[in-house]
Amino acid sequence: MSKIKVVHYLNQFFAQIGGEEMADMEPELREGLIGPGIALQQALGADYEIVATVICGDNYFGSNLEEAQSRILELIKPYSPQLFVAGPAFNAGRYGVACGTIATAVEKEFGIPALTGMYVENPGVEMFKKDLYIIETANSAAGMRKAMPKIATLAKKLINGNEIDLPAEDGYHERGIRVNYFHDKRGSTRAVDMLLQKVKGEEYQTEYPMPFFDRVPPATPIIDMSKAKVAIVSSGGIVPLGNPDRIESSSATKFGKYDVTGMDRMSKDDFISIHGGYDTAYILEDPNLAIPLDVLREMEKEGQIGELANYFYSTTGTGTSVGNAEVFGTEIGKQLLADGVTAVILTST
């Protein structure tokens, strides 16, 4: 059996090239293993072989993010690696960010398991834990001996397609990924247990800590609405008859852009709602209840708004993950900006 090919990523310091003075070094590849690679190879065992090590200066990586990534990917490609390990970076911030960035890029580019290791306070943990398995390490290189076996154990599980255990058991930073399992008690029994603990003032542990939603500073207001180009976006699940883009009625994975050129109002002969979260009978009868095309057209004619964009963007809000909604928003926003839109009305059901 041929060995599993591993590529290892190190910064200038761990590759024993130099300290801060060498932090600008550009990416280069060495065949075989270097420095911490010895411990990694040992932990991985005889079925694995570190075929190459890529080295890059932390400052170079940080100030040339795009270029560093593409150059490193090019360097690695000929080796067709099956596993990628970066670092570990311990508490080195720039190194942590580099490890996270390149491991994420490798995973995406080659579709292979990529992992790294960091100390809990390394900013790279917060940045990349959702994308990667990041093994929890000590805050300095003194923890190398302990970190490498953990990295190797998890890497092997990923390679072999074994089930990954809880963060505490497999030693990685919790990624905030919600994974199903079967508890030995049903939910209602757990609720009674938890309630009695809470009532008695004992310690209890929620099964889902309240999530965090970030904030965006408000955009500056429109000064003269009669010159503004207004666009409509909706999460009410309004689509043309037949739902051409097959948008899901719940937990949407896509959005649609639908033309309303020449229309004075939304007609029930042209549009329907496929939203699974409410009684759609009213909107099926009058889609203007979700997409206020009729009144916006009037305002456009009266000159209250400069122009109404001749389309609306649409998706289903119910059960749609914030992750997907962010992707939709980013793409819709880009397109709106490119089309000269200056103000947006977003309607939700």
């Binding site: 904030r215 408000p218 976006v233 909604a325 962010e326 709106l336 839109v341 947006v344 977003l346 939700s348």
Partner: peptide, 25 residues
């Protein structure tokens, strides 16, 4: 979606019934 569009500097008005959700997100 609201936030991501607003990140481009485009003002967005969210017209919705369940205001608490809009405030949360």
């Amino acid at each position: 979606m609201v936030k991501e569009i607003e990140r481009y500097g485009l003002p967005v008005v969210h017209m919705c019934t369940i205001v608490p959700i809009s405030l949360t997100i």
